[in-house]
Write a protein that binds this DNA or RNA. Structure first.
Lengths: 190, 190, 190, 190
DNA sequence: AATGAATGAGAATTCATTCAT
DNA sequence: AATGAATGAATTCTCATTCAT
């Protein structure tokens, strides 16, 4: 049998794409991505049908990464506030410690090269987060709004927080806590 | 390059660029923009030195538009909460009623073609918003955080709200109010 | 107004394509064609949507050229044999004196890049030849065959003849006559 | 390069190449040929040095196939007309019943990837046909022309006939006969 | 020997920008 | 000033060929 397709190489391409898309947007040349991945220009296309496929798969890979990060060590039986804090902290840390991933996701989120179907898959992946927030909002101030609204607020505030943590890493703990408290006041009762 | 004559034409190009960048990102061809503006391909370059200049000026124009919208009819002597609500409502309405502007700004915000200097100019333009929020936060829950943090939270929550208002225009009023209340709980004392 | 599109340039591209396709087939690079035409690579695409459009238009242009050549000076009221000889001589001379056109047509005739629709247009253009041959065959040996069969025989014999005339130009007259006589014996009565 | 083992595999590649070249011309990717042959991309190159070698060998294989077909059951001692008719019928049937082979040969005949030397080898293979036609022409109308001219006319008319037989298989017998009669009138005396 | 992943030199386009009209 | 044709560098993707498995 011939050389098998290498999962490592595929991951290298995705990692390189993360960096390049973060820095230059989805319109960055594929040649730059393959160079950053240390493979030949053509090799990129044995792992991804075309550039759009790469961008869409990158989007999903990043979403999956977030999901796995948020859910790792999820304290399913802890109190609501502790579970929410777990998700919050994980998400802020994820973004703050990996600015390229965060930025790449921001770029792909507004790119028309990511298909609607792919976006749906991505959101579905965060359904668990939404369920959690739903629990928070259920008897809280957001009782009259759809759960997606509270979830969107969580993500938006966390992303805002990420930016500050990134720029002032020494104050990470303070921002993370202040951000969470703001979120908690915003959506929970009392 | 000759001196441009018509302010109308310049505005038509900026308006066209707003639509095109909103739909396809900053990498959309200038030819598409000029076509949408109803001018010849070359004409675009008598009004803007090059594509980067156009994008940067578009970014500033959008920021200016936001600033003017927020500040029009600003009730300088009203209570803090009323002034904050004014800004909030204006901003949400601006984005919800002009999705292309909102989306174009989102695209430019993550584009590396908008220079750091241009971004600074843009933020400076929203200094007044920041000052207002500072007033809110001053004795509020955010007293220990930099005012920019509270201001960023305002913008982030307002932008989240815009999205919901856009998708469910019939519920505009409800979302606008729910969003503002969430913001107010998040940052003000009591 | 801007520089108008130049018919000369378009023709230069078609002429260059004739030479290049004749020599290297339809898979020859467009860059080679534009170079041969003395225009920039991109210019080719302001005159032709894409390579397929160029090849199809070239096919039609060659067919039109043949038609015009055959029909120029057509002795409509001469005897059948004289009219047939006119067409024969013109066609053989066309191919023998312009081997590139002949060869390019041969290449395009077997290329799957020339569409069925385009082929039909091309054949329609030679309807007059077919009508003539029909007259020849009408009471001749081919009375029981469709007129297209006799017409195809004319073209096939003429193309065979072209090849010999090309390789032995000194014997042009002899081959031309011998070919026509063969054709005439093949299809006419007596 | 290792010595190829299986004659079957080599033939499978040539057969696949026949189909693919017939349908898409000599510029069709080797990957398509190997896929059609049911072998790996690399395997093609253990049987043929490179793509040009494959195309040239395919050309010769097709010529050989024609020669063998024409000569199988050749009635060496029959009358001239019967021998000619034998060759004619075999050739027309060969092409009409195997359009891919016919079409592939037509493609290779105008391709610049088939070398002059290879073409000569191919013609030499049909020397016997030429000798036969020479006999026909010897005392016929073509007495003053080189025998190659009469032979070329045979092939051209037969190929024209093939096309009609292919499109109207029910009329095969009629076209085959009409074509031969036309040929015979064209070149024989009386 | 057979496989098919890897390679990088092209290939067809696209596109920002210039410039003749 | 306005126009849009002309330019050629840059871009995405293909493909013959090599080579690790």
């Amino acid at each position: 049998m011939a050389r098998p397709r290498s999962e490592d190489k595929r991951n290298a391409i995705l990692a390189a794409a993360t960096e390049v898309v973060a820095a230059h947007g989805p319109s960055a040349p594929t040649a730059r991505i393959s160079r950053a991945a240390g493979v030949a220009e053509g090799t990129l296309f044995t792992y991804f049908d075309d550039k759009d496929a790469l961008l869409n798969e990158l989007y999903l890979a990043l979403k999956r990464d977030v999901r796995d990060t948020l859910m790792a060590g999820y304290p399913a039986s802890a109190s609501l506030v502790d579970r929410a804090r777990h998700v919050w902290n994980r998400y802020v840390d994820w973004g703050a410690s990996q600015p390229a991933k965060h930025r790449a996701m921001a770029q792909l989120a507004v790119s028309d090269r990511v298909t609607a179907q792919c976006r749906e898959l991505g959101s579905a992946m965060l359904a668990e987060v939404e369920a959690l927030v739903h629990g928070v909002a259920w008897r809280g101030e957001m009782a009259d709004q759809p759960p997606a609204f509270a979830a969107a607020i969580l993500m938006a505030l966390a992303e805002t927080t990420m930016g500050f943590v990134q720029r002032e890493p020494d104050e990470a703990e303070r921002y993370r806590r202040a951000g969470f408290d703001a979120f908690w006041r915003a959506v929970s009762k009392e």
